[in-house]
């Protein structure tokens, strides 16, 4: 036994640079957060489309969107935005506590409502984009 233990010698662990790789759930969390990069990309892509439509440059945009690397980016963006939708809509009931008759509405009901709304909104958007009222 050492007798001369320095006062205040508590050991402070260094920052773990690879913390996000230590467990699967940390990695899933980081991937969930990184979907935001593709959310930003999707918005930029939409703005490019809007700009092309309004300036009459739609054929050029169609050619650009058809490039293999562009399709590859958008396939990843689709996966990321869909992952964002699933995780975000599933986590929503954590912040919004709905009380009916004094007791909490179960999370699956709120989640089910969210996902149903997602389907309806998607169908409405697809309808107007593809067909609309002629």
């Amino acid at each position: 036994m050492k007798t001369e233990v320095p006062a205040g010698a508590a050991y402070r662990p260094r920052r773990d640079r690879l913390w996000f790789a230590r467990t699967r759930s940390y990695t899933v969390f980081v991937l969930r957060e990184l979907t935001s990069v593709f959310v930003a990309w999707s918005v930029a892509f939409l703005l490019m489309l809007v700009s092309a439509v309004l300036s009459g440059g739609l054929p050029e945009f169609v050619a650009l969107a058809g490039r293999p690397w562009m399709i590859a980016i958008n396939v990843v963006a689709l996966a990321a935005t869909a992952f964002h939708s699933v995780t975000f809509l599933n986590l929503a009931p954590k912040a919004t506590v709905v009380r009916l008759d004094g007791y909490r509405l179960p999370a699956w009901m709120i989640q089910g409502g969210n996902h149903s709304l997602w389907l309806v909104v998607s169908a409405v958007i697809a309808f107007f984009v593809l067909r609309g009222f002629r």
């Binding site: 969390f29 986590l91 506590v97």
Partner: peptide, 26 residues
């Protein structure tokens, strides 16, 4: 809090701190 949600997973008493934090954010 960035809602990692691990606090709730490891809680041995099922307190769900992640939910408590998100509710107070709102």
């Amino acid at each position: 809090c960035t809602f990692v949600g691990e606090c709730t997973k490891v809680c041995p008493k099922h307190v769900d701190p992640a939910e408590a934090i998100q509710r107070y954010k709102l």
